[in-house]
Design a protein around this nucleic acid. Structure first.
Lengths: 346, 346
DNA sequence: ATCGGTGATGCAATCGGTTGTATAATATAC
DNA sequence: GTATATTATACAACCGATTGCATCACCGAT
């Protein structure tokens, strides 16, 4: 039946006040609200509730330039890393009366542009970017619009933008030190694509940690995957194993790459963890179910999303609030893919 | 800098026409557009493009009651079944100029209500419900508002609402027949919760298929899980194995339950597939990576989402279009968790 | 020359809240 | 008892696009 929506004028009429007064009585803004007599305000509020009044967001946003919505851009929701992050974002935002506009960019800047435009034109109150690329085109663009932005899962080198992420460097440090403590020294790194901050930070930390332990990294014992995919993992692992048969452990830049390695191991009859140990990164939801269960670096995905949304809300309410950069600690989850180094029988 | 947004009046001024004329020139509505002189229209359009004009959605939606956004309600994005569906929805919607408002209900009707209200008050043009519950409270509520609704991943018994899903019955039929063709006759069913249409349809199909094959299902050889979780799967599987040690195969209502069974098998030293075969449902992303890789029923998740969105768009443009109910075919993916029945050595 | 018709455009109301300013009513001060 | 604050409310413009209606120019027909 679609009964005509109840409007501010309706409740004003019932409360026998002017719409303007009614508006103030229902305002969240304390400054405005205290302009109206408490009794009148109470009456208006009661009637509004009785009538189940909901202000029209279009009308409101037309005047106020506020949409109570936040745009979220991620590479691909199909990547198991993102669902929990999104979930955190949505929970926080929803709790604050905001709604989430979601877009998948596929790391394609044309798509990203398009989605962003759509969101900007819909007057989102803030943007949360979970894209991991290191270029900041889009970011500066948004900043130029005076729109709050929060990065999630990555930070800018200069920490100029509010961000929430895990500490990639610390994570890799834990991974490497774990292997070292098991007696490994011939450790290879299967690095991710370098245009992602995650790929770049992890490789950096690998070198630093190895050096700190006094272990020299042989040239080419770090291999670069062109994507965070299983196929690339397998391919690079094959090359690595062929070039360095005496490697006893691999630090993979993420779980997908690690799983690709499993495949390469199997092909060449290498047993994991007996012959080689491997540790992943991200602790993807299935990492504990594969065989052998993968030792990995986990971090609180949900909280990362939640906190990012929190920062966004803070920024919306106070655009001049401090530019916080939050790192949530990673943790090492030891499973069955790593074990003490054994003397290889030739 | 936040340069003031360019408005319809701006381009009207530049094109030296009245805003009303400009509006018509830029309208998608052919009826309106042909009211204006083609030359004038072209000029207006050119200027609009040059000035990078974007109509304010708030203003537009205030007048037209259209928001060009669609609400999507799912139980939990963290459930691996949903990301590809969401992705399909977003791709289709985005291609049609709509934006997605996403909400996670956790199958909690209070949460669902809240999210729905938020979306309704934001004047979404349609709702897509991926919640699997069989009660239709929310649905009737939306229909009462004259708002297009599409169900995804489930259908109503009476097919009264446009929906897109896979054919649960056909899927289970394939699973059961696969086991039968491998020589199994002592087949148990680990059923899902019955308040979900998926749980209900799958159990029904199990009985039908077994009967059609002339195999009698022993009482209690169908066990009811209280949730689609690994823990429930393990628990029910233990009970089942204790009560029916001679069962040679299990049809699980979904992959999570099947994985729970793996755990139960391991506890009691039952080998899969040597001692027992098992089939899952959904083909979750990790089902091929676990050990043994799980035989499962797959269906085109992405397409299901895409088509659902398509239906929604169709409904938005023509509310009286036929109430389509689309079933996308499931497929059996045979992996290593099922094998020909072997004579058990006592 | 006049009229009806057609095509193109201008005009103005409208969608539903918000908010700066004016006004009225009451209280306080002298 | 008049002047001045103070408080509560009313008024009206406004956000930016849409659309029914009015208008006007120009056409061919009579």
């Amino acid at each position: 039946m679609a009964a005509r929506r109840v409007t501010l004028r309706d409740i004003a009429r019932l409360a026998e006040v002017h719409p303007g007064t009614a508006s103030r009585a229902l305002s969240d803004d304390e400054k405005l609200k205290k302009l109206v007599n408490p009794e009148t305000a109470a009456r208006v509020q009661r009637i509004a509730k009785e009538m189940n009044y909901n202000p029209d967001p279009a009308a409101r946003s037309l005047k106020t330039r506020r949409s109570h919505s936040v745009g979220v851009l991620i590479p691909d929701i199909t990547n198991p890393l993102f669902p929990p992050i999104i979930r955190g974002i949505e929970d926080c935002l929803g709790g604050n009366g905001f709604v989430v506009l979601l877009g998948n960019t596929d790391d394609d800047s044309k798509r990203e542009r398009m989605l962003l435009d759509g969101m900007l034109s819909r007057r989102v109150d803030a943007m949360i970017l979970a894209t991991a690329k290191r270029d900041h085109d889009v970011v500066v663009d948004i900043v130029a619009q005076d729109l709050p932005v929060v990065l999630v899962n990555r930070v800018l080198d200069n920490h100029a933008i509010p961000s929430v992420a895990t500490d990639d460097m610390a994570g890799i440090r834990m991974a490497v030190n774990h292997l070292i403590s098991l007696g490994h020294t011939k450790i290879a790194h299967l690095a991710g694509p370098q245009e992602f901050s995650t790929g770049a930070n992890r490789i950096k930390s690998f070198y630093l940690t190895m050096n700190a332990a006094g272990i020299e990294v042989e040239p080419n014992m770090v291999s670069y995957a062109e994507s965070f995919s299983q196929a690339e993992g397998a391919k690079r692992c094959r090359e690595l194993m062929a070039a360095f048969p005496d490697v006893t452990a691999i630090v993979a830049a993420n779980d997908m790459l690690a799983i690709g390695c499993y495949q390469a191991f199997e092909e060449s009859g290498i047993r994991c963890p007996e012959d080689i140990s491997i540790v992943g990164f991200n602790d993807a939801p299935f990492s504990d179910k594969i065989s052998p269960p993968l030792t990995s670096i986990t971090f609180p995905h949900y909280q990362v999303g939640f906190e990012a949304a929190n920062l966004a809300v803070e920024r919306i309410h106070n655009p001049n609030s401090a530019t916080k950069v939050l790192f949530l600690p990673p943790e090492l989850v030891v499973r069955k893919s790593t074990t003490a180094v054994s003397v290889k029988l030739k």
